[in-house]
């Protein structure tokens, strides 16, 4: 079944990119989930859409191809993440309000750019739900770079990120620069989202960051174990999702998320089975 993916260049790029985001999305996702920031991923993916729409608009109207939609999406995502942090500072007592503000702002801006460009149907559809044929060699190399960067930063700051996620007050008291570490973390999140959108699409990218984590949370005893298990589940979802999506002509965003949901249900079932045995 994998034969086509090895034979055709464009499919190989997609497949390898898929393997990369199968690592980095759940990797960042473990921190996002335990810090109860799952919705931030959603808000940022919509801001990324605005960036992509901006890139496509520039391409179409001005034949400006120096900045690809991947880059402009990434730039918007990072700027959006900075805005979320600022808003969370402004509304200290209602921090979650930053999310609908940024999310609707992102969608609004996307609509404006799409209208200005007189629409770009199929391409946009690919960005919303993901595509098996959308990854160019250039995109792959960029995402490879981002992935290496993210894995490196996470391993260098693992203990700080973990300490901060568990107990922010304790982390601050013990002398960790909570604000700076958090800021770094949000920027990484923005990068992962922008990198994943090509394959899973704007609407489903947060699922790849949270569903594998939700599944492994039921089974893992410790944090590291959960992280490893999340990545295993993420990879499983990406591989099965991509291959089935290709053969069934379904955008991979849909199939990847459905596989993730099945894994999640299985893990919940397994946990309950174990629980009953203990009783």
């Amino acid at each position: 079944m994998l034969a086509d993916f090895l034979e055709f260049d464009f499919l190989r790029n997609t497949f390898l990119t898929g393997l990369l985001i199968g690592i980095i999305a759940p990797l960042l996702g473990t921190f996002i989930v335990v810090r109860r920031l799952s919705l931030i991923a959603d808000a940022l993916s919509h801001v990324t859409l605005a960036g992509i729409a901006f890139g496509l608009f520039m391409e179409k109207k001005f034949a400006f191809t120096l900045i690809t939609p991947l880059y402009s999406g990434m730039a918007f995502s990072v700027i959006g993440s900075i805005f979320i942090e600022k808003l969370r500072g402004v509304y200290k007592a209602y921090q979650e309000i930053a999310i609908p503000i940024i999310l609707s702002g992102g969608v609004g801006l996307s609509v404006v750019f799409i209208a200005l460009a007189d629409g770009f149907n199929t391409e946009l559809f690919n960005y919303l739900f993901g595509s098996v044929s959308a990854v160019s060699k250039n995109d792959f190399l960029t995402i490879l770079g981002i992935s290496i960067f993210i894995v490196l930063i996470i391993s260098l700051f693992y203990k700080e990120l973990f300490t901060l996620s568990f107990d922010e007050e304790h982390a601050t008291v013990s002398g960790i620069h909570a604000k700076r570490i958090h800021f770094l973390f949000i920027i990484l999140t923005a990068l992962v989202i922008a990198a994943s959108i090509r394959i899973v699409g704007v609407l489903l990218v947060s699922a790849l960051m949270t569903l594998p984590v939700a599944a492994s949370m039921r089974l893992a005893k410790g944090f590291k174990q959960m992280m490893v298990l999340s990545i295993v589940f993420g990879e499983l979802a990406v591989i099965i999702g991509l291959v089935s999506g290709y053969y069934l002509s379904i955008p991979p965003g849909g199939t990847i998320v459905m596989v993730s949901i099945i894994i999640l249900l299985l893990s919940i079932g397994l946990k309950q089975l174990r629980y009953r045995k203990q009783k």
């Binding site: 335990v34 300490t163 107990d167 007050e169």
Partner: peptide, 25 residues
């Protein structure tokens, strides 16, 4: 802290991992 005991009980961390946080800084 007063709050240590009201941490999120669902947080997946082993005793070893929690204690290791005391060395982070």
């Amino acid at each position: 802290s007063q709050k240590s005991n009201s941490f999120n009980k669902g947080f997946p961390a082993t005793v070893y991992e929690v204690v290791s946080m005391g060395l982070t800084a």
